[in-house]
Amino acid sequence: MKPLRPSERRALWGLAAFVLGTLMVVGVWQPARQNLAQATLRVEQQLELANRLAQAQPVRQTGPQQPLAPFISESAQRANLELQQLDIAGPMLNVAVAGDALAVLAWLQGLEAAGAHLHSLALQPKGALLQARAGVTNRPDR
């Protein structure tokens, strides 16, 4: 193999510099710009959410429109849940239901949406079912 002429050597160095520059742009600069764009978008979304939360007005809930015990019993039956306990303890009802986990959680969310207030809540898996025990009232603590 014979040695390279100076012009060939310069051409190889130029080619190496071009390849290195291309790799830097593709491997470092472009991913950094994409990460910056994604981070900027996430920050804007978080700021928009924070502004919406700051402007949100609390909803005044008055409680279910019917007495609490029949409301709980009927709503549990509509949700295909097994009502295991419904005891009156002063102004609070102690309730225990069991059923499909998603159905139990949706039922609890529905109770709160209707204005019932959960003072205590314990969730426990029972095989394929989820059991929920809760202390429920018609009004918030004051």
Rank of each mutant, 00 (worst) to 15 (best):
V19P: 06
L20D: 04
L20H: 04
L20V: 11
T22R: 06
T22Q: 09
L23V: 14
M24N: 12
M24F: 12
M24P: 02
V25H: 12
V25I: 14
V26Q: 13
V26M: 13
G27I: 03
G27D: 03
W29V: 10
Q30V: 13
Q30R: 12
P31V: 03
A32V: 14
R33H: 11
R33K: 11
Q34G: 07
N35V: 12
N35R: 12
N35G: 10
N35C: 08
L36C: 02
L36D: 12
L36G: 01
A37Q: 15
A37F: 07
A39I: 07
T40W: 15
T40Q: 15
T40V: 08
L41F: 11
R42A: 05
V43W: 04
E44M: 07
Q45W: 05
Q45C: 04
Q45K: 12
Q45P: 03
Q45V: 08
L47G: 00
L47M: 11
E48S: 14
E48W: 10
E48Y: 09
A50D: 13
A50W: 04
N51S: 07
N51I: 06
N51E: 14
R52H: 08
L53V: 04
L53A: 00
A54R: 10
A54D: 08
A54K: 05
A56V: 06
A56G: 05
Q57I: 09
Q57C: 04
P58I: 05
V59R: 15
Q61D: 00
Q61Y: 09
Q61W: 02
Q61P: 03
T62I: 08
T62R: 15
G63W: 01
G63M: 03
Q66C: 00
P67N: 09
P67T: 02
L68V: 03
A69D: 01
A69R: 02
P70E: 05
P70Q: 10
P70T: 00
F71P: 02
F71N: 01
I72T: 00
S73N: 14
E74H: 11
S75I: 04
Q77N: 11
Q77I: 09
R78Y: 04
R78F: 02
A79K: 07
L81Q: 03
L81Y: 03
L81I: 05
L81C: 06
E82M: 04
Q84H: 06
Q85K: 12
Q85F: 00
L86M: 05
L86D: 03
L86E: 00
L86V: 09
L86Q: 10
I88E: 15
I88F: 10
I88H: 11
I88D: 13
I88Y: 10
A89Q: 14
P91T: 15
M92L: 14
M92Q: 13
L93G: 02
L93P: 01
V95W: 04
